[in-house]
Nucleic acid binder design. Sequence first.
DNA 1: GCCAACGTTGGC
DNA 2: GCCAACGTTGGC
Length: 152
Amino acid sequence: MKTWLLKSEPSAFSIDDLERRPGHTEPWDGVRNYQARNLLRDQIKRGDQAFFYHSSCPQPAIVGVVEVASDRRPDPTAFDPAAAHYDPGSTPDNPRWYLVDVRFLRRLRRPLPLAELKTHPELAGLPLLQKGNRLSVMPVGAAEWAFILSLE
DNA sequence: GCCAACGTTGGC
DNA sequence: GCCAACGTTGGC
């Protein structure tokens, strides 16, 4: 099992929204960045776990743990002219963008704010903390995963 | 709202 | 292929 971090703006889709979905599960659609796409398409597997991170909000923080609940498949919202992230360059015959289903597992006992994560030298290598990193899907190493869980 | 840091686009 | 312009992300 590999471990990841998924960003979402809670005003658009929060961990509360995920928990309320039928089966606590939601397609993680709308990823339109090639680096993140490559992770979704090639590396993220059913059964992997990920931190759910709230970004662009009063307190950016890791708020919970989710599970990858499906194999990857083409992102159908890319084919839909009415969808926010429609991409005419992506077709069912030759899809450009992918998604996986994500299932709520649990909330952390307390949110772990970005500001707090930054204070721990153990997390200096975490992609989330690298300057200028805007990826919405990022890897989390096993040691960092365990360390973050120890902070709850 | 500001601004730094990226990614993308398009002229050449 | 270069690079300026522009758009987006996201913390503060």
